[in-house]
Design a protein around this nucleic acid. Sequence first.
DNA 1: CTGGGTGCAAAGTATTTGCATGAAC
DNA 2: GTTCATGCAAATACTTTGCACCCAG
Lengths: 134, 134
Amino acid sequence: MQRYMTLLKEHNIKITPQRLAIVKLMDEQGHISVRDIFERIKENFPSLSLATVYKNINAMIESDFIKELKIVGLDNKYELIKEKHSHLVCQECGDIEDIFIDTTSLTKSVSKESGFKVADTTVQFFGTCKKCAA
Amino acid sequence: MQRYMTLLKEHNIKITPQRLAIVKLMDEQGHISVRDIFERIKENFPSLSLATVYKNINAMIESDFIKELKIVGLDNKYELIKEKHSHLVCQECGDIEDIFIDTTSLTKSVSKESGFKVADTTVQFFGTCKKCAA
DNA sequence: CTGGGTGCAAAGTATTTGCATGAAC
DNA sequence: GTTCATGCAAATACTTTGCACCCAG
């Protein structure tokens, strides 16, 4: 838990039990929706309000602490900001995995070809995960 | 207009004035939100209902005629299905441009590396467009 | 003529906001 | 003690649904 307190402090986010629970869950799950955060935390913290979850999520996005993922076919998900990566989205089970691939050459060729100044790149792969293929 | 009638027929979507207007607008704009479709068409077609727009959008997605785009920071957008491409999203003006880049090597390396069977790939570049950079 | 589309109103879901109370520093 | 977070309720936004009527094929 100390780890999550440190993480929050580093981003100038005031520590509360609600926030610690959100960060912990997000770290454990990798990618999680507002609804799932609310329901999972409410189990051990019945007074939790959905509004609090939304407010905290928005505050954490604002502080560049977490990131919103929009994925066709799924609810919005949120994840801790970490090393740059892409996502594998299984269309069978809805699971999301991180994958580390190099997109720098892609980004460079786009800048060169189009005159568009790229600041960030999002890559999502849709298909069937190992488990579901078996 | 004949062109849009043919397009709809090819996808087994019954032709109505509302649907023709939606397809035309989408073709002209490239990427458009539900709200914008509704407001733009309503100008020349005051009886149009928002529910009709939603129903038609969903029917067209179902028929693989249009595609939903989810982009962080923007409302969902819809576009006609056409040659595979990626998107340049300008964070200044919110404009979206298409760009044709080859993602096959990317996709192959993912399959090989992870055992995930890739069916489709989505790539979005965020940054500053030529106009806004000037 | 007949099936499916339209528009309306209502319901359902998602998200934000205002405010009084309470907790963190 | 002061500032800011929480929880609640209400407001707003987004999307879907049921149904009566109407139009395209």
